[in-house]
Design a protein around this nucleic acid. Structure first.
Length: 419
RNA sequence: GUGGUCGUAGCUCAAUUUGGUUAGAGCAUCAGGUUGUGGCCCUGAAGGCUGCCGGUUCGAGUCCGGUCGACCACCCCA
């Protein structure tokens, strides 16, 4: 095979597109009913946008971004996620105004140069929401709830919601300083990865799986204890409100996200069916990002869903709709004149919204009936030489195998009742 | 970026004890089973440079190296 799709990228084939259309439709419906409006941004942006927002020290930006110079010498990157783009667009078009709440959602492909794995691809689809303009912890809950509404409407079971707080710019620097000091004192017991994380993304050390590191972390200063009053009460209200709405949540104090812009709330919705990459949905609050990117200081919260992962969980829970084969009528034609007549008739039927198909390759009647059967045709209209002469045609009901002679004008009336 | 497992028709899989002649089957596809009638059944056809490149050997789908890709884990994250 000379050409194949690039590593970590996949063709979505005709047999799979109905499932994609199904979840996309639900996303539009449910996010819409939650008051979010769709926004579509370009797949490419200035590289700097992502360096500023996600953080140029993060793996996503430093190692995993598809970036290049265009012919005009501009530094361009394929978006690795959409929040930065949505914020940029919202600022650019004045969608963010003082004391105004904006609720946006998006759906589209994202790109990260990673080693492919279960639930991880180089081009993958995300659907997400962003809520700008309120610092209320209830807004964090609303965002989680929007995800839950979507998942429920798809029939998903046994998903778990994990939440945490990573503090804000008032309390986190002090904590990071504290943690850094502690880790520096114990650096000999930390793995190579952690010694690097210590410098680049120190909170991630808390989530290391290495046994030796775990021991060190066990005695490390706790982030929770260091949260300022504001963060603490924000987290309590967020957590409490979800519980009171009947959402079971568990606090995971290791839930530290790899994007720099998160403040206070972080959360994930995970599924055990997924393997190592188990988050179907992840998000959190980012109160400083909009200002950071040049907009008015505006608090915000958002989340993103990995669509391939969502589809995978749905498939394993047998929630994907059967690709329904249905065709109102198939016209079997014998002879060139008949084919022409058939095509004309199919054209008329299609114009009036009836699904119709014919075969112009001159196959035998038997073969055409087989094709019709394979397409799930309810009726087959047979146009042969006899019919062309007589001006009346055989209409076969494929379910009952009954056949009758009709004239073309009667066709609609005959097939209408079951439409 | 690191490590492990694996690449045989469109799909799912075969191919005997460190290798041995024209690489098989099921499903799917197409065509037939008498003149113009589907599903079931029967018959037949087509479909593979065994991922690619190189090496060992009289001989490689099978062994070795490389490469590309898939899967899984680390890392990271949706």
């Amino acid at each position: 095979m000379k050409y194949q799709s690039l590593r970590g990228t996949h063709d979505i084939l005709p047999e799979e597109t109905p499932a994609w259309q199904y979840i996309e439709k639900k996303i539009h419906e449910k996010f819409g009913s939650c008051g979010f409006c769709e926004i579509r941004t370009p797949a490419i942006e200035q590289t700097e946008l992502f360096m500023r927002s996600i953080g140029d020290q993060t793996d996503i930006v430093s190692k995993e971004m598809y970036s290049f110079q265009d012919k005009g010498g501009r530094n361009i990157a394929l978006r690795p996620e959409a929040t930065a783009s949505v914020v940029r667009a919202a600022i650019e078009h004045n969608l963010i105004a003082k004391d105004k709440i904006s609720k946006l959602y998006y759906i589209g492909p994202m790109f990260r140069y990673e080693r492919p794995q279960a639930g991880r691809f180089r081009q993958f689809y995300q659907a997400g929401i962003e809520l700008f303009g309120t610092s209320s912890a209830l807004a964090d809950a609303e965002v989680v709830l929007a995800g839950i509404i979507l998942f429920n409407s798809l029939g998903l079971r046994s998903l778990e919601v994990e939440i945490n707080s990573v503090g804000c710019k008032k309390c986190r620097p002090a904590y990071e300083e504290e943690l850094k000091k502690y880790l520096a004192a114990n650096s000999s017991k930390l793995c190579a990865d952690c010694n690097e994380r210590k410098e680049k993304n120190i909170l991630r050390v808390l989530d290391c799986k290495n046994e030796s590191c775990k021991k060190v972390i066990f005695k490390a200063p706790s982030l929770e204890a260091m949260l300022c009053e504001e963060c603490k009460s924000h987290f309590e209200e967020f957590s409490g409100s979800l519980s009171s709405f009947g959402v079971t949540v568990s606090v995971n104090d290791k839930l530290v996200r790899g994007l720099d812009y998160y403040t206070k709330t972080t959360f994930e919705i995970i599924s055990k069916e997924l393997g190592a990459q188990n988050a179907v949905c992840g998000g959190g609050r980012y109160d400083d990002l909009i200002e950071e990117l040049g907009g008015p200081a505006t608090p915000a919260v958002g989340m993103a869903i990995g669509l391939e992962r969502l589809l995978f969980v749905m498939a394993s829970q047998k929630l994907l709709p059967e690709p329904g084969k249905e065709l109102d009528i198939y016209i079997a034609a014998i002879g060139h004149d008949a084919q022409k007549k058939a095509l004309q008739q199919v054209f008329e039927l299609r114009k009036s919204g009836i699904s119709a198909e014919t075969d112009l390759s001159g196959k035998s009647l038997k073969s055409q009936l087989k094709t019709a059967d394979g397409l799930g045709a309810r009726y087959v209209l047979i146009i042969g030489e006899d019919e062309m002469k007589k001006g009346s045609f055989s209409l076969r009901n494929m379910k009952t195998a009954q056949q009758k002679e009709i004239r073309m004008e009667e066709l609609y009336r005959e097939i209408e009742p079951t439409c």
